[in-house]
Amino acid sequence: MEIIAWILAIIMFIIAFIGLVYPIIPSVLFVVAGFLLYGWIMTFDGMNWLFWLIQILFVILLFGADTFANIVGVKKFGGSKAGMWGSTIGLLVGPFIIPVAGILIGPFLGAVLAELLISRKGLKQSMKTGIGSLVGFLTSIVAKGAVLLLMIGIFIYFVLI
């Protein structure tokens, strides 16, 4: 049973990392699902209150990371609220319209179009905002990936030690 528990947990962790580049997949929820599956199949004994407190804090951090990174990236490059919304919509829609490349093209185009059409900014500033949205998105992928690895490392520590 232990092997099955680990296999299922690892599958959940892999899906979580896929969610870093496909934002429709809630990465952090799959990591927590991996913890819960392991606990249900094996035991929750190693996962005490301290473990869950730490993990809940990371979950809260990760839910805010996307929004924060997008806001910082767009604002840092002179974008408006329309640029932020355009970037977010592009991030969600892009991968479905253009598989694989849409994850990068979507937020960029969303931010640029929102700045051009809604905020009425010039092409140069709109392009700058699009680049800012990409910088924010890529920064959030790296940061979230590091936090997911940390969460999994803490899980392994608490379960095996």
Rank of each mutant, 00 (worst) to 15 (best):
I3S: 07
M1G: 13
A114L: 02
G153E: 01
I18F: 15
I18W: 09
Q125M: 06
K144N: 07
G90D: 02
P95V: 10
N70V: 13
G73M: 03
L148C: 10
D66W: 04
S119Q: 10
I156H: 05
A5C: 15
V28E: 02
P107M: 08
V135G: 09
W52D: 04
S140N: 11
L91S: 14
L57H: 01
M12A: 15
M47C: 13
S133D: 02
I11P: 00
A143M: 12
L149Q: 03
V112K: 00
T139F: 04
A16M: 14
V32I: 15
M84V: 14
F108G: 05
F58T: 02
I154Y: 11
S87Q: 12
F35E: 02
F158R: 12
F155K: 02
Y157F: 15
L123D: 00
G64M: 05
M42Y: 11
Y157P: 02
G79C: 03
V21H: 13
V112N: 00
F44S: 03
S133P: 03
T67A: 05
I25C: 08
I71L: 10
I131R: 00
W49D: 14
V21T: 09
L53R: 13
I24Y: 07
V31G: 10
P26T: 08
L116P: 00
Q125A: 12
M47I: 14
L104P: 12
G19T: 05
V93K: 01
M127C: 02
L123K: 01
F63K: 00
F13W: 14
Q125R: 08
A65T: 05
